[in-house]
Simulated scan of single mutants.
Amino acid sequence: MRLALDDLHVALAGRDVVAGVHLVAESGEIAGLIGPNGSGKSTLLRAVYRHLAPRAGRVLLDGRDLTALPRAEAARNLAALPQERGEDFELTVRQMVGLGRLPHQRAFAADSAEDRAQTARALDRVGMGGHAERRFAELSGGERQRVLLARALAQQPEVLVLDEPTNHLDIRHQVELLALLRAQRATTLVALHDLNAAASVCDRLHVLAGGALVASGPPREVLTADLLAEVFGVRAAVTAHPLTGDPLIAFDHRTPPAA
Rank of each mutant, 00 (worst) to 15 (best):
Gly20Asp: 00
Arg144Trp: 07
Leu91Thr: 01
Pro218Ala: 15
Val190His: 06
Val190Trp: 00
Thr239Asp: 14
Pro157Glu: 00
Arg76Pro: 05
Arg15Gln: 14
Val159Asn: 03
Ala237Ile: 09
Arg85Asn: 14
Asp115Glu: 10
Ala56Val: 08
Ala107Gln: 13
His241Lys: 11
Gly14Val: 08
Leu8Ile: 11
Ala4Asp: 06
Val126Tyr: 10
Asp203Val: 09
Thr43Glu: 04
Ala79Ile: 04
Ala215His: 09
Val24Ser: 10
Leu178Ile: 11
Gln95His: 06
Leu177Met: 15
Leu178Trp: 08
Leu195Met: 02
Gly211His: 02
Glu176Gln: 09
Ser112Leu: 02
Val93Asn: 05
His168Ser: 06
His9Ala: 08
Ala191Asn: 04
Gly129Thr: 02
His193Pro: 03
Asp7Trp: 00
Ala240Glu: 15
Arg58His: 14
Ser39Leu: 06
Ala154Asp: 10
Leu91Val: 07
Gln156Tyr: 03
Gly40Pro: 03
Ala179Val: 02
Ala199Ile: 05
Gly210His: 08
Leu5Glu: 10
Ala19Thr: 11
Gln105Leu: 14
Arg125Asn: 07
Thr244Pro: 08
Leu153Asn: 04
Phe108Arg: 04
Gly233Tyr: 11
Ala197Val: 04
Asp62His: 00
Val161Leu: 01
Val59Cys: 06
Gly130Ser: 01
Val201Gly: 05
Ala152Thr: 04
Leu213Asn: 02
Ala215Asp: 12
Val234Pro: 01
Ala137Trp: 05
Leu148Gly: 01
Asp252Pro: 07
Ser216Asn: 09
Gly98Asn: 06
Ala132Gln: 14
Val161Ser: 00
Arg71Gly: 12
Asp163Leu: 09
Ala250Val: 15
Val17Thr: 06
Thr188Met: 05
Gln184Val: 09
Arg64Phe: 00
Leu44Asp: 06
Leu213Glu: 09
Leu123Ser: 10
Thr239Ile: 13
Ile30Gln: 03
Lys41Thr: 01
Leu12Tyr: 14
Ala250Asp: 12
Gly141Trp: 14
Ala236His: 07
Leu148Val: 10
His22Leu: 03
Thr244Glu: 12
Glu158Tyr: 03
Ser27Arg: 15
Gly141Asp: 13
Asp16Thr: 01
Phe108Ser: 02
His173Arg: 02
Ala117Thr: 11
Thr187Ser: 10
Glu26Asn: 13
His51Lys: 13
Leu123Ala: 09
Asp65Glu: 15
Glu90Gly: 12
Val18Arg: 05
Gly129Phe: 06
Phe89Lys: 07
Glu87Asp: 14
Leu192His: 01
Leu99Ser: 01
Leu195Trp: 05
Ala19Pro: 02
Ala72Gly: 11
Leu160Val: 00
Ala209Phe: 08
Asp16Lys: 04
Asp163Arg: 05
Arg101Phe: 11
Pro54Val: 08
Arg182Gln: 15
Ala197Lys: 04
Leu205Gly: 10
